[in-house]
Amino acid sequence: MPTPLKPTVEFDDTLGRLDLRLGRVLQAEPEPNAPKPAYRLTIDFGKYGVRTSVGRFTQQTPEDIVGRQVVGVLNFAPRQIGDASSEVLVLGVQVPGADSGEATALTPLITAKLGSKVF
């Protein structure tokens, strides 16, 4: 049974407050000190710089992730995950049949400009 939809919200109070941008993964490597299996991703957001994200994208190999464009939230406060500071939340969806939290990243259908605003 699907989970119910959440109540309606105003754009300016929710999505309008997030800085969602497109980046390209430059590096992906295991983060050995994370509490659960995770990768440390180095992501280029164009004019917004290169940033680090730690996420549970381990259902894919690092080779499958490097070079992919991903959507990230740039204006969340950094989170300490293991020994790494995760500066960006990469958006993803649950991998079917995988443990809770195992994700695959949201990606555009075609290659777009790095740093592009997501709307």
Results as ranks from 00 to 15, higher is better:
16 G>N: 02
102 E>H: 12
2 P>W: 00
82 G>D: 11
112 A>L: 15
32 P>T: 02
108 P>F: 04
82 G>Y: 04
96 P>C: 09
78 P>L: 08
66 V>T: 13
24 R>G: 04
105 A>L: 13
77 A>C: 05
50 V>M: 08
101 G>H: 06
119 F>H: 13
58 T>V: 15
42 T>P: 09
27 Q>E: 15
107 T>E: 13
109 L>K: 12
16 G>E: 01
71 V>S: 01
117 K>M: 11
2 P>E: 03
58 T>H: 14
11 F>E: 07
17 R>M: 12
51 R>D: 00
48 Y>M: 07
44 D>G: 12
50 V>H: 03
41 L>D: 00
28 A>P: 08
28 A>S: 14
109 L>Q: 13
90 V>Q: 04
97 G>K: 07
68 R>T: 07
69 Q>Y: 06
75 N>V: 02
52 T>G: 01
2 P>I: 04
70 V>N: 06
111 T>L: 13
96 P>S: 03
88 V>C: 06
33 N>G: 04
83 D>N: 14
102 E>K: 11
12 D>G: 09
84 A>E: 13
58 T>W: 05
63 E>A: 15
99 D>K: 14
23 G>M: 01
67 G>Q: 06
20 L>E: 00
34 A>S: 15
76 F>N: 12
7 P>T: 02
118 V>W: 14
48 Y>K: 05
14 T>H: 09
89 L>S: 00
32 P>W: 00
78 P>I: 00
33 N>W: 09
53 S>W: 01
91 L>S: 04
116 S>H: 02
36 K>M: 08
31 E>H: 05
42 T>W: 04
20 L>M: 14
43 I>G: 09
80 Q>G: 06
110 I>E: 13
68 R>I: 01
45 F>P: 13
69 Q>N: 07
6 K>Y: 03
50 V>Y: 11
21 R>V: 05
88 V>N: 04
88 V>R: 08
103 A>S: 15
22 L>P: 07
87 E>T: 13
3 T>L: 09
48 Y>N: 14
89 L>T: 02
33 N>Q: 15
86 S>P: 14
45 F>V: 11
11 F>T: 02
86 S>Y: 10
34 A>H: 04
7 P>Q: 09
109 L>F: 12
60 Q>M: 14
8 T>C: 07
90 V>K: 08
7 P>R: 06
95 V>S: 06
60 Q>C: 04
27 Q>C: 04
37 P>V: 09
72 G>Q: 01
6 K>V: 11
48 Y>H: 15
23 G>D: 00
15 L>N: 07
15 L>E: 06
89 L>G: 02
31 E>C: 03
78 P>Y: 10
94 Q>Y: 02
43 I>H: 05
105 A>W: 12
89 L>N: 02
56 R>M: 10
32 P>C: 11
96 P>M: 11
38 A>N: 03
29 E>F: 05
21 R>S: 01
47 K>L: 05
97 G>V: 13
97 G>L: 09
106 L>T: 12
22 L>F: 09
117 K>N: 11
58 T>Y: 06
30 P>V: 07
